[in-house]
Amino acid sequence: MNSDWLRKLCAVGGVSGQEDAVRDILLSLLPPEAETQTDGLGNLIVRKKGAARPKNTVMLCAHMDEVGMLVTYISSDGMLKFSAIGMDRKAYLGKRVAVGCQALPGVVGVTPVHLLSDDKQKTIPAAHTLYIDIGAADREAAEALVQPGDAVQLTGDLASFGDGCWKGKALDDRMGCLLLLELLQEDLPYDICVVFTVQEEVGLRGAKAAAFSVDPAYAVVVETTTAADLPDISGAERVCRLGGGAVVSFMDKGTIYPFALYRSAMALAAQHGIPVQTKSLVAGGNDAGAIHQSRGGVPTLAISVPCRYLHSPACVAKEADWAAVAALTRLVWEDFCQQ
């Protein structure tokens, strides 16, 4: 895993609808022989010639966007009201954020616990009461720096820790972007088509349009997925675990994956000694939800890196799991090319 590239990809903001900075980094790191096209929604479609033509067009996909907020209103006291995209509010309450293209520092404020009843000390405040404080003393001062519509990113630098773990904001799904970016650097046996999609977190909107234009016979979505392997959570509710390898799902909230494809991916992993696991709960969803319904239907698989604290400033994933996803994605792609 090229951690320098992952750091570059995670450092920039790409809240849904404002993925430009992520796309620019991907464009700058693609090999010169890759043909690129940015569609009307902002999806980046990349094609590269391989040694042979595949029997089937296979669309590989990872989303560029990340969870965050949009500024909706500036109050008279200089505070920013916002709408959160794809996040549980406890993940950003009391955290540092970065506002607008200039990444102005701000904080999501809270009433001090000292001034709250016992009940309220144990309650996450209602979403409509929350605000971002950038230090502006009043509306005029804030308006000179921010305007409604500006995106707000979570802040959380990529860092390695523990035994082969990485933490940072936007690992969902820059880890997938990195994986496909690295695959595109290789000399490949077949022509390849990779789509870096926009707006996954607001309803798989980029993938819907991209799947229509690419018109693939098969698709593979490379993602991160929730791991809840934490104390006090047991059995099926853990969903999947860090260190357990690539996650191949048979069903999530958006897609029932073709069982034959699911089984063949599991068999490929076993045959090549790639650690693999499935999700023990029907939870979450990804771009497959849009892609599999495209045109006359597209058999699709999702292969994911298990990730703790998804949709937070500090997602945690293991490099060994990413490597398993990379190895399995490559095999599944080649398999789909020849089906």
């Binding site: 709960l281 939870a283 703790r308 604290y309 998804l310």
Partner: peptide, 26 residues
Amino acid sequence: RVLAAQEVIVHGSQPLLGVISSVPPH
């Protein structure tokens, strides 16, 4: 209320980076 997914430093026998757990929405 502000601890979920908060980055921390654990001052053990050496300083260690850590993240406070956050139970996922599901």
